[in-house]
């Protein structure tokens, strides 16, 4: 286990919204200027803090969707009906508005070209990404970064989305990506349909004997199910890293 201690203080930073763009019918891309940002690694997240007039505050975590090379910080936020924070971020916030955030947070759910550089290209363990819904966000940072850095590490993304319109990151997804749609496919759809189950994982991800480094991100139930299946298929537990976004279906 890496012992790279990240022992520095995380202070709240002022972030100014530069753009609030539709990424899909349910997800907005929030683009921030954060003057005091000290950089991040692909896979890390920020904590966002909102403060009401009466002093009430709410904090939530959001993965960073942009690579370290991008001077602006991109978040992909799903508008959850009835939610306290996500509807505010997606519907209320306009360019020029400020909020507070701090980060980068999390040093475990990370894949960066710099971390790979120490290992000769032909000895690198491949990277397998598995996303559910908005869980694609940190993987867009990883893919974008790997591409810009010219990282030759073999990588695949298996990405479960509801419909074709819900797929995030459009242009960034290349031949490494297999999308599966869980709520029906449009005419002419050439990807997969149905949930990420054992058969799909066997068919569309690196096998255990390729010793991939596996990252799974999305709603808690999705992550839990996929992780269990991967271990059943023979992946070492220590090779599987998880990021859970939460969600109504949490096991009670």
């Amino acid at each position: 286990m890496a012992r790279a201690a990240v022992q520095r203080r995380l202070t709240w930073l002022r972030a100014r919204l530069a753009d609030n763009l539709p990424e899909s019918p349910r997800v907005r891309r929030l683009v921030f200027d954060v003057p005091d940002w000290r950089g991040h690694l692909p896979g890390q997240h920020v904590d966002v803090r909102l403060t009401a007039e009466d002093g009430y505050t709410a904090q939530r975590s959001y993965s960073i969707a942009s690579p370290p090379e991008d001077p602006r910080l991109h978040l992909l936020v799903e508008d959850l009906e009835g939610g306290e924070v996500s509807p505010y971020l997606t519907e209320e916030m306009q360019a020029g508005d400020d909020l507070e955030l701090r980060g980068p947070i999390g040093g475990y759910f990370v894949w960066s070209a710099a971390a790979d550089a120490a290992t000769p290209a032909d000895q690198r363990r491949p990277v397998q990404l598995v996303a559910g819904g908005a869980g694609a966000s940190p993987f867009l940072a990883m893919l974008d970064h790997a591409r810009r850095a010219g990282d030759p590490t073999p990588v695949r993304l298996l990405y479960s989305a509801r419909t074709a319109d819900d797929v995030l990151g459009g242009d960034l997804l290349g031949p490494e990506t297999t999308v599966t749609l869980t709520r029906g496919a449009p005419p002419g759809w050439r990807g997969r349909t149905g949930r990420v189950d054992r058969a799909l994982l066997q068919e569309q991800t690196f096998p255990p004997d390729a010793r991939p480094r596996v990252f799974v991100c999305g709603p808690t139930v999705f992550v839990e199910t996929v992780a269990t299946t991967l271990v059943d298929l023979g992946h070492a537990s220590s090779a599987v890293r998880l990021e859970r976004f939460g969600g109504t279906g949490d096991p009670a």
């Binding site: 803090r49 403060t51 009401a52 009430y56 505050t57 505010y88 508005d97 909020l99 507070e100």
Partner: peptide, 23 residues
């Protein structure tokens, strides 16, 4: 010296609960 987010308000239970730590 928190920054106030214009138009943001509590959507969860209105009573402050003293069992709840900050944040």
């Amino acid at each position: 010296m928190s920054l106030v987010s214009r138009g943001f308000g509590r959507r969860r239970s209105a009573t402050t609960d003293d069992r709840l730590p900050p944040g």
